[in-house]
Design a protein around this nucleic acid. Structure first.
Length: 524
RNA sequence: GCGGCUGUAGCUCAGUUGGUUAGAGCGUCGGAUUGUGGCUCCGAAGGUCGGUGGUUCGAGCCCACCCAGCCGUACCA
């Protein structure tokens, strides 16, 4: 069939086409997010998809070419350009370039496609959409607290319920402090620190035992592949793992206190009361663990302050939680980090259980904007992974997406090709009445035209043969109702001759009658 | 990148120890029905068996290399 010179239609891996349902659902979702961000006083900004590679900070050290994880190419003048791989670095470039004109602290939001030249996987693509909100020019942890609350409110605006998500908060200074405390604070230990952070980041997937192996000698996975560990001593490992044991520790403390234990049993310490006790316990535990590290203690103090702020907004009911195991990326974060995680599981089409996990996150990046400016510029922000979040919303059938609600246009059948002008006039009348309509433009007969209308999800079709035209009328067939009626008819002759859900109206009344049919299926 | 698994019609798959002309279901298109989308029946189209090379009288099946996809792992700024 395909001759050798026929070009094979194909899409590069990790990229996807998007159809009408997907586009419509995305737009609805974006509108909800946008409304929420604006409620918090953020204003939109749009930057291009292409930036100088050095502005993205993506040149490989010691090599005159960009990191291979970004799509890059050279301009006429040999300068390297790259497709943006997130929305934060371009914002930093924009904020720096527009610094004098902006009202500071500068609150902005934007959404758009970002590109990563990486191996794609389930739910991971080489082009995907992010939706960010950032505050540039505020060093206050109140800005971080606000970002956390915005994350929670946004997820709820998208139809997620309390308990279906959690915004976890940590502080990179706490992690840095732990490193210091176990003697990895020196500059030459940077590599080791990275390995430790990577190990901590894998807690979700590998569990505490897997992380313990990675902190020590290393870990062999199911395929037999060996990952070299950080080579820490047992003592050092214990100190790092203590980060994950804060919850257990809080419970232990509680259960040792007869009054608290009794309170937990009868439900006094549930909800905000329990969460507050937990947060206090964790912060106390961290403070304990970090003695001797000024930076670590500073991080713990910031966490405490964030907790107080979100508590004042009543977000301390489990929506926002302190979690010392959150790492979030590995490079530019300098203070508080946050991660929005979905907590529910759903079976996919193959019956396997799917956890969506992280659908967004961010943190404080005090060094990013000041790369371009002679002054320090503190900044914080977060990013929603729109595509992944939408997959999750689909799985819980969030009404926000409006799936299954789409209708196609009204289709005017062409019964007689010589009368095309007359059919065109009918279509125009419908359009002027505000009704999406089209004339069938193909070459097939009536049966095929009906099939076409069906596939287009047309709510109804307009039929005018010579009889109707002579009498100045049209037939309107309600396809939705017709399909419903057909269920009770098994005889084909009866099905055709009874013409279910079909009415005859004068041409002058067509627009009104079609509008009546559409009104039955209007969903919003 | 590393390890494993899988590639047969648009889709899901069958294909015997290597043996003649590679099959099914679904989908598509056409007809029964020249003016009615469903149901039913009938029919048709649709294949470089992932690619290249090799072994063999003979390869969808065996071998080598390559490509693609999936799973795990690493990396993910």
């Amino acid at each position: 069939m395909a001759s050798p010179e026929t070009l094979k239609a194909r899409l590069p891996r990790g990229l996807v086409d998007r159809g009408p349902e997907e586009i419509k659902a995305t737009e609805k979702m974006l509108a909800k997010i946008r409304a929420q961000y604006e409620l918090y006083g953020f204003e939109p900004v749009e930057t291009p998809l292409i930036e100088y590679t050095d502005a993205l900070g993506k040149f490989l050290p010691d090599q005159d070419r960009p990191n291979e994880g970004v799509f890059s190419f050279q301009d006429d003048d040999e300068q390297w350009l790259s497709l943006r791989y997130d929305l934060t670095a371009p914002l930093a470039r924009f904020a720096a370039e527009s610094w004098d004109k902006l009202a500071k602290p500068y609150r902005s939001y934007r959404n758009g496609w970002v590109f990563r030249n990486e191996k794609p996987g389930p739910g991971r693509f080489r082009q995907f959409m992010q939706f960010d909100a950032d505050i540039v020019g505020s060093a206050s942890v109140a800005a971080d607290a606000e970002i956390c609350m915005l994350m929670a409110d946004t997820l709820e605006a998208l139809g997620l319920k309390r308990g279906q998500y959690v915004v976890k908060v940590n502080n990179r200074k706490v992690l840095d402090g732990v490193m210091e405390a176990i003697g990895l604070g020196a500059p030459e230990d940077a590599g080791k620190r990275l390995t430790v952070l990577r190990a901590i980041d894998k807690l979700d997937r590998l569990g505490i035992d897997g992380v313990r192996l990675l902190l020590g000698e290393g870990r062999k996975d199911d395929s037999g592949d060996f990952t070299k560990g950080a080579g820490l001593s047992d003592e050092q490992i214990a100190r790092v793992l203590a980060l994950f044991e804060m919850d257990a520790r809080v419970e232990a403390v509680r259960d040792h206190n007869p009054v608290l234990a009794e309170g937990a049993k009868v439900g006094v310490f549930s909800g905000a009361a329990h969460e507050t006790m937990r947060a206090r316990g964790i912060i106390a535990g961290l403070t304990d663990n970090l003695q001797g590290s000024a930076r670590g203690l500073e991080g713990a103090a910031e966490l405490k302050e964030i907790w107080q702020l979100v508590s004042a907004g009543a977000y301390n009911d489990g929506r926002i939680r302190i979690d010392p195991s959150v790492v979030r990326g590995l490079e530019y974060y300098t203070g508080p980090v946050y991660e929005a995680e979905l907590t529910f599981e759903v079976p996919n089409d193959d019956g396997q259980i799917v956890r969506f996990g992280s659908v967004g996150g961010g943190g404080r990046y005090d060094g990013l904007v000041s790369r371009f400016l002679p002054e320090p510029v503190p900044a914080t922000g977060f990013s929603i992974g729109v595509s992944r979040l939408m997959a999750a919303l689909k799985a819980i059938k969030s009404p926000i997406l409006g799936l299954g609600e789409t209708h196609g246009p009204v289709v005017v059948l062409v019964m007689d090709k010589a009368e095309t002008a007359a059919y065109q006039a009918l279509v125009t009348a419908l359009r002027h009445g505000g009704i999406a309509a089209e004339m069938y433009l193909g070459a097939s007969g009536m049966k095929a035209q009906m099939k076409y209308a069906d596939r287009r999800k047309a709510p109804c079709v307009v039929i005018q043969g010579s009889n109707e035209r002579e009498n100045g009328v049209v037939q309107l067939k309600d396809l939705v109702e017709g399909a419903r009626l057909s269920a009770g008819i098994t005889d084909n002759k009866e099905w055709r001759e009874s013409r279910p859900a079909q009415v005859t109206v004068p041409v002058s009344a067509m627009v009104g009658a079609v509008a009546d049919i559409l009104a039955r299926y209007r969903t919003e």
